[in-house]
């Protein structure tokens, strides 16, 4: 999917894993991603996410931070340190304080996005990290708001 650097041509091949314990947030993220054209899978905590990531190649992970069994920080540390994977992991957070953002980045997350999610922000965020050489696409993404 990274043979050409254009999100529009590749969008249907991009697989996103949503890691989120709140059913409303799961459905919202899935609906938005599907509407934008991305493929997505959903799982309920970090532990299940690790199992899925071991068997499926995901291009991007949307990671909630506070979840039962295994939180997003721990799951991210394991993805980076044990699975040695470097795909963008975007923390989905309700509290966008500087402290929270620092904590996410310190644990290996690539970036953060605030909840409730918005389609144009999600599109721009995925584009920014998968196709950094082509960030002007963000402008086109805004029409998908």
């Amino acid at each position: 999917m990274k043979e050409t650097s254009n999100i529009k041509e590749n969008i249907g091949k991009i697989k996103v894993l949503i890691v989120e314990d709140n059913v409303l947030n799961q459905k919202m993220a899935s609906f938005l991603l599907k509407g934008l054209g991305f493929n997505n899978d959903v799982c309920v905590n970090g532990k299940v996410a690790l199992d899925k990531i071991k068997t499926t190649n995901y291009d991007v992970v949307l990671m909630d931070v506070q979840m039962p069994e295994m939180d997003g920080y721990e799951a991210t540390r394991q993805i980076r340190n044990e699975l040695k994977l470097h795909m963008p992991i975007i923390a989905t957070i309700g509290n966008t304080s500087e402290e929270e953002i620092k904590k996410c980045l310190a644990n290996g997350m690539t970036d953060v996005i605030s909840k409730p999610l918005k389609g144009d922000e999600l599109y721009a965020m995925i584009n920014k990290h998968l196709f950094p050489e082509n960030v002007s696409e963000n402008v086109n993404g805004s029409e998908l708001d």
Partner: peptide, 13 residues
């Protein structure tokens, strides 16, 4: 604490 945090992400919907 945990349950208020959870509600916080639900109510904006």
């Amino acid at each position: 604490k945990a349950s208020a945090h959870k509600l916080k992400s639900t109510i904006p919907f």
